[in-house]
Nucleic acid binder design. Structure first.
Lengths: 204, 204
DNA sequence: ACCTGAACACCGTTCAAGT
DNA sequence: ACCTGAACACCGTTCAAGT
């Protein structure tokens, strides 16, 4: 489909506009934002949304997908500068935390109860996998390994750690005064894990 | 399951009955269960719920609190048998995963967007802290340390890891055919972290 | 093809009134 | 003190009708 240049939303890409509005509302009023609010923000009747999304959950899934795409981009950019793998990993983790911190509600939606039950929303799945690829690559270098299984395991371990930490920070179960504090505490806490991974690779 | 209108509830502990019903509904229909459904299950008008809870969120907070109490009990019980700290920790992690697996929706609610914003719900906070105490104790033994800061850091690291792993399993981002498989994979993945923690304690 | 208007069943919350 | 009945504003979803 051809994209009309700078038309009003009504004639242009309403699907995209609704997702944009939903992401804004997520930041402004939280996860209980309404399909009708999103439609109103775009300047369209709420029934119009159903031309582009099967349900509110389908809209949420698209919002979630866009979140993973954005997260993947941040991670990739943060790892760009050439650096020893150890430092690269720490930068990745910090970038991960920053995303969760700055897009709190969006992040919580991404990791909330499953939006893609039943195998629908294949694109969401793909976006998730792509977002963690950078992590596995950096770990491959740290472990000096090309074994995909080993890299996947390590990637999963580090990702799980980062996510669990982010959740604890967002829920204020960790008392930090600023994002900066949370960042350095994360780097501090993850050190044993990275040490353990690197040593384990040596031993084998 | 079977609708049984319990006459006794009306004169008894309606607050408890509503929370019970909510937990059942969480398992049966998921997180979008309704305050009205809970009231109907108890055999009471939905307006009656507001005599015991300020809002639906308050009911959710109570349900969450009860979840953390239950989780704390499982963890404590799983660690009871005398065993080397390493094995004890692995049992704790397995018990943690089992809880998340068996009470999926309840667990997701517990770690979902914050129910206790604004410092209300102090009891929820206390239940959360209590549930992780066993973890810190076991880590104190592993690290052979009584330094509370060190134990808290280690506890936070292991807890973050366990939570992140559980979320990835529940979201089926990790492909496991059974709970048993998920358990042993968890033990496998967490090994580097425990190694790193133990080694780090030796070095200092 | 895309959107509107109107309707439906349902929801959280409130409150005067019953017991 | 605890609960009911009725009401309010709002929601997700559907669909015939407009353009």
């Amino acid at each position: 489909m051809t994209r009309r240049p700078k038309r009003a939303y009504h004639h242009g890409d309403l699907q995209r506009a609704l997702a944009d509005a939903a992401i804004e509302l997520l930041a402004e009023v939280g996860p209980s934002f309404t399909l009708r609010q999103a439609a109103e923000r775009v300047g369209v009747t709420h029934a119009a949304a159903y031309r582009h999304f099967d349900s509110r959950d389908a809209l949420l899934a698209e919002v979630s997908r866009r979140g993973f795409v954005a997260l993947g981009e941040r991670l990739a950019r943060s790892a760009r500068g050439a650096a020893p793998p150890r430092e690269r990993l720490e930068r990745l983790l910090v970038a991960y935390l920053r995303f969760a911190w700055k897009h709190r509600a969006h992040y919580e939606l991404m990791f909330g109860p499953r939006l893609n039950e039943g195998g629908r929303f294949v694109e969401l799945e793909r976006a998730i996998r792509a977002s963690t690829r950078v992590l596995e690559e950096a770990l491959g270098e740290l472990l000096d390994s090309t074994d995909p299984v080993q890299c996947r395991d390590a990637g999963l371990a580090v990702w799980s750690f980062a996510h669990g930490y982010a959740v604890n920070v967002l829920a204020r179960r960790i008392h930090v005064r600023s994002l900066r504090t949370a960042e350095s505490y994360l780097v501090h806490l993850v050190r044993p894990l990275l040490d353990g991974l690197a040593d384990g690779a040596d031993a084998s």
